[in-house]
Design a protein around this nucleic acid. Sequence first.
DNA 1: CCCCAGTCCTGCGGGC
DNA 2: TGCCCGCAGGACTGGG
Length: 278
Amino acid sequence: MPELPEVETMCRGIAEIVGRRIRDVRRPRSQLHPIEISPRLAEIRRRTAGKMIVAVRRVGKRAVIELTGGDRLVFEPRMTGRLLLADPPDHRYVRLVFDLAGRPRRRLLFWNMRGLGVVRLLSPRQFARRLGPDRLGPDALKITPQLLRDRLGKSRRAIKVALLDQRAVAGIGNLYASEILHRCKLHPELPCHDLRPAQWRKLQAAIEDVLREAINLEGSTLADGTYRNARNGPGGFQSRHRVYQRAGDTCLQCGKATIVRMVQANRSTFFCPRCQRR
DNA sequence: CCCCAGTCCTGCGGGC
DNA sequence: TGCCCGCAGGACTGGG
């Protein structure tokens, strides 16, 4: 979680900060293990002070804030990260605060319960290296059936595992990978090299359908409640999950089989053994 | 090159 | 009641 739809929602939710200047950056005192930031805070503060935010955009599962002069702030929410303009639900997990100049008064918060999130300030060159085509495949919303086939068609990996590889296609994580494969009726353990052209087309269509629907509903807020939009509200896609965390429940597609949980590459996969045949 | 297992972090729920 | 363990999965690394 936060995957493409959640990060897209975060970016849209903070779009109003475009045009503002950064006044200061602070790291709140905390008992918790500090998150990774780079470079060190003093340098981030120096290089961002007075800079204007010219764009907010999503790159894969990361949120990127572009500043005048070319530097970019890159936020990796990982599991439990959020970008907030509203008051945080729990102040303990506020990891970084950006005070913005101007009125009305605004602060951008990087909130992260588990300390897995990362914030980096990157020069254009660093940005190109870290988020360039060597590290990140085409965005999941831009990919075509042919591109999917080009990048994965010779792989022996299971299709579910391959969908999580950000170098192949950027933005899909564990939750949406299961939902996507159920939508296009592909078995998660199918080796990539066994997929037929028609199946790559169905897969691409499912990727687009599932992700667009999830964006329209502002992502998935799970039982732990961790993910929220920038106004602290829950997403709506969790009520549309057909397989994720539904092990033992009846498949909503066929109404007959029971959803199964299995482990692939150390991660949970959910699927319907009746709808998704090998 | 390809692919997998292990690592980080915190909260939560199950078992006893 | 309290403790311990496993699980949750982002990105990345080391090694077969």
